[in-house]
Structure formats: structure tokens, C-alpha cells
């Protein structure tokens, strides 16, 4: 019995065409001919223009867009379902930024666990496998009854730090306790110190007070987080660091969502460089903004998954850009 499907089909929705192009180029495979549109009544329409029968289908769609998150989600679900009804052998959703990842717990009475709902919806639509990156909480993998490969931007970030900064004079900083583990892991690999900022949050997207744990005096502080959304945390963390006599503050995040007035906040901030990966399209303008391309990691994951090779290599190594 053959378990490896015969060939890869790459499909992409409207959320991040540039990333899809890059992955497609990296793999040397064209994107499949599909059309994703919206009718005038705002329902989503998906047209499939080539056969996916018995193929290994990869659908690239990220969670982004202030007005379009749900549209992109429906596009993804409809594409998955269309491939399922068209007899694809295996359907893998490639979701670099998993939407609703922060709605992952019942933190107050009757709060929706939307991340779990999304997991269920993907499976209902007919998804067999999920590839994602830097899940806000890796426990979300447990919401699925199908395999989830949670890739890390860490190797790419490590390479970027080594190439760009004076590593010896730097210190890594986690802007909250939740990210401490992620930062500690990078600090270990660079053999650096790390500091932590403890924040007291009263409401979502609002922070009241920040306490720095660690010494950042005259150091280049590299703030590392999994996502930058409204950037309230980042900007306040940067201020806290500078108040503690940091030489310079640089922020590196995986998912640069930059919603609300993030653009303004960043423009007025004292962060000297803002770095994010291209898991979501950049929607702000800032000359201090820099991007790390993670498409090689996603492309390599697709290749390995298709060929039945181990993915774990990618947890500690970034394929060349």
C-alpha cells in the first residue's frame, strides 16, 4: 500500500499571496488554479480549476486582517471542504498565524474557547493535518484530533540576531512571564543573559504596571515575543527598559499583526528596530521595520511532510533563504 500521495498541490487563499508565492517558488511548484472571490452579498465563493483527486493538498492561509479574519477563515474552510469533496488524498492546512489562538481558555465564566472551536471547524471541514508556527500556547495542539506541526521561528530569529547585532553586548528580554520560556531558550543558544518584565494586566489589550527583573544597564535589549498586536506591551516594555538605562531596545516578534493604533504607537516609540516575520502581511509603514522571511521553513516542512521525513530538524535549524 502506498502511503505517500502522488504529488503536492499548493492552494492559497487571499490572506497572504506574497507568502504563498515564496513558498511556491521555494518548492519549485506552481500554485494550483483556484479562484477565491466574494459575491456581492459577501458570501465567499471558491472555484477549483484543476484536479486534486488523490493528491497531497496544502492550503496556505494565515490569520490576519482587521476586517477580514473571519472571511479568510471561511475561505480556508470552504477550500478544505472543496478539496475533500473532490477526493484529495490528504489535506494539510498551512496556517502560519493561527487565528483566535489567544481565545484558548475559559478564563471567566462562559467565555468561549474559540481556538478549540476553530480546531473543530477545521477538522469538520475535512482537514487531515495542520502546519502552523509559534502557536500562542502550544497546548492548542491538544485541541486537535489530527496531527499538528507547530514550527518555530526561533532558528530564523537566531540567525537574524547573529547576523545583525553585537551579540556580546546584548541581553534578551521577555516582555511577559508567559514568553519567558521562549526567550530563555534563545538566550541559552546565544549564551546570553536574559531579563523579564512582569506586567499586571487589568483588561485585554491594556496594561497597568511593569516591573523589570534583571539588569539591562548599557546593554542592547532584544525584546522577544510571539506576537505584536496593538503593541501596547512592546512600547511600554521598551520604555521600562530605557528607564533602567538600557542602551538600545530592539524588538523581534513572530507575528506582526499591528492592529489598532499600533502604527502610531510604534512611530512614537523609542524602539530602534522592529523586526517581525512574514507569517502575516505587513500592514503598517515604519522605516525601522525589518522582516525575517520564514517561507523556507514552511516550504521545507511541506516538502518533508510530503516525503514522510522528520520535521524535528526544523525545530533547531533554519533552511537557507
Amino acid at each position: 500500500m502506498t502511503t505517500v500521495p502522488n504529488s503536492i498541490k499548493l492552494l492559497a487563499g487571499n490572506s497572504h499571496p506574497e507568502l504563498a508565492e515564496k513558498i511556491s517558488k521555494k518548492l519549485g511548484l506552481p500554485l494550483s488554479k483556484i479562484g477565491v472571490y466574494q459575491y456581492s452579498n459577501q458570501e465567499t465563493s471558491v472555484t477549483i480549476g484543476e484536479s486534486v483527486r488523490d493528491e497531497d493538498v496544502y492550503i496556505i492561509q494565515t490569520g490576519c486582517g482587521e476586517d477580514e479574519v473571519n472571511d479568510f477563515l471561511m475561505e480556508l474552510l470552504i477550500m478544505i471542504n472543496a478539496c475533500k469533496t473532490a477526493s484529495a488524498r490528504r489535506i494539510t492546512a498551512v496556517i502560519p498565524n493561527f487565528p483566535y489562538a489567544r481565545q484558548d481558555k475559559k478564563d471567566k465564566s462562559r467565555a468561549p474557547i474559540t481556538a478549540k472551536l476553530i480546531a473543530n471547524l477545521l477538522q469538520t471541514a475535512g482537514c487531515h493535518h495542520v502546519i502552523t508556527m509559534d502557536l500562542h500556547a502550544s497546548q492548542i495542539q491538544g485541541f486537535f484530533r489530527i496531527p499538528v506541526d507547530n514550527l518555530y521561528a526561533e532558528p530564523s530569529v537566531l540567525r537574524y540576531i547573529k547576523e545583525q547585532f553585537d551579540v556580546k553586548n546584548s541581553i534578551l528580554v521577555s516582555p511577559d512571564a508567559g514568553g519567558a520560556k521562549r526567550v530563555a531558550s534563545i538566550a541559552d543558544k546565544l549564551d546570553l543573559q536574559f531579563a523579564l518584565i512582569h506586567k499586571e494586566r487589568q483588561k485585554a489589550n491594556e496594561i497597568s504596571r511593569m516591573v523589570l527583573v534583571g539588569d539591562v544597564k548599557d546593554k542592547i535589549c532584544i525584546l522577544i515575543d510571539d506576537m505584536a498586536d496593538t503593541c501596547g506591551t512592546l512600547v511600554k516594555a521598551a520604555d521600562t527598559l530605557l528607564q533602567n538605562n538600557a542602551k538600545e531596545v530592539i524588538s523581534i516578534v513572530t507575528h506582526g499583526i499591528f492592529s489598532g493604533d499600533a502604527e502610531k504607537k510604534l512611530a512614537n516609540s523609542k524602539i530602534s528596530r522592529i523586526v517581525c516575520t512574514n507569517t502575516v502581511p505587513i500592514n503598517i509603514e515604519n522605516e525601522r521595520l525589518d522582516q525575517i522571511d520564514i517561507s523556507p521553513t514552511l516550504a521545507e516542512a511541506i516538502r518533508r511532510l510530503h516525503n514522510g521525513e522528520s520535521i524535528s530538524y526544523l525545530f533547531s535549524n533554519a533552511p537557507p533563504v
Binding site: 487571499n14 490572506s15 499571496p17 506574497e18 508565492e21 511556491s24 517558488k25 506552481p30 500554485l31 488554479k33 479562484g35 477565491v36 472571490y37 466574494q38 459575491y39 456581492s40 465567499t44 465563493s45 486582517g65 482587521e66 476586517d67 477580514e68 472571511d71 475561505e75 502581511p281 505587513i282 500592514n283 509603514e285
Partner: peptide, 24 residues
Amino acid sequence: LEQPTPSKADSPNHHHHHSRIPKI
């Protein structure tokens, strides 16, 4: 498909007011 690299016009700085979803 005939243009692997999206041209500048095709990849504007996406502002969230402009939908990226083509309308029929």
C-alpha cells in the same frame, strides 16, 4: 501563475480598508 514575483502594483502595502478579497 505567469508572474512568480508579484509586481509592485500587485502587492501594495495592504491597508486594512482595502479588501484583499476580489469581488465578483
